[in-house]
């Protein structure tokens, strides 16, 4: 029998803080073991700009602007298994704390009424910039998500257990101590 094909994994950070990616690196020397069985496609760890056909997509962060929607869809279209990694992807997290405010109030406060703004500052309207959504959403409200890995961030151990379960082809199960929401 052939040696099993390496699984292709892509990762990205939407409205997140890269904390979950840091946690991924936190699996330390096990990262080398991981690289034995997976190879990375689009990811901040590589420099690939667009997601190719992948086995697993790991999404950090929630959806807060139009670009997030496009990236998330690219991942969904290309990844057989899509995983929401971390509190922000799972439930919107810290960025979603703005959801009880109206976006136009926030924009006005930040770009117009906030004390200490330089004169002439206005709300950016450059078409190159992605527009913010009225609210921040967890990723499962925009695309179908196969698995959720909670934590802010999930610990290196939790990520390791989760990924090795996935790679081994069994339904990931974290168990007590590894499931944490904080």
């Amino acid at each position: 029998m052939d040696a099993p094909r390496k699984l292709k994994v892509a990762t990205t950070s939407l409205a997140g803080c890269f904390g979950c990616h840091m946690s991924l690196l936190d699996i330390d020397e096990r990262l080398l073991d991981l690289l034995e069985i997976v190879e990375f496609d689009r990811s901040p760890l590589t420099d690939i700009k667009h997601c190719g056909h992948c086995d697993i997509g790991l999404i950090e962060g929630g959806v807060c602007n139009a670009e997030n929607v496009h990236v998330l869809r690219e991942f969904r279209a290309n990844c057989k298994i899509l995983v929401a990694v971390g509190a922000c992807a799972v439930n919107g997290g810290l960025p979603a704390q703005r959801n009880h405010l109206q976006l136009h109030e926030i924009l006005t406060a930040v770009y117009a009424t906030e004390a200490g703004l330089a004169s002439g500052v206005q709300i950016p309207n450059d078409p190159e910039l992605p527009l913010p959504l009225n609210q921040v959403h967890p990723i499962h409200e925009v695309v179908k998500v196969d698995y959720f890995l909670p934590g802010c961030p999930p610990s290196g151990d939790a990520i390791w257990k989760f990924l090795t379960d996935l790679v081994a082809g069994c339904s990931p199960h974290l168990g007590y101590g590894l499931i944490r929401y904080d």
Partner: peptide, 17 residues
Amino acid sequence: SALSQARQMTGRDDSGA
């Protein structure tokens, strides 16, 4: 429609909006 407020505030209506 989730982009409605941002469109209004920036006055943008391009395809990216």
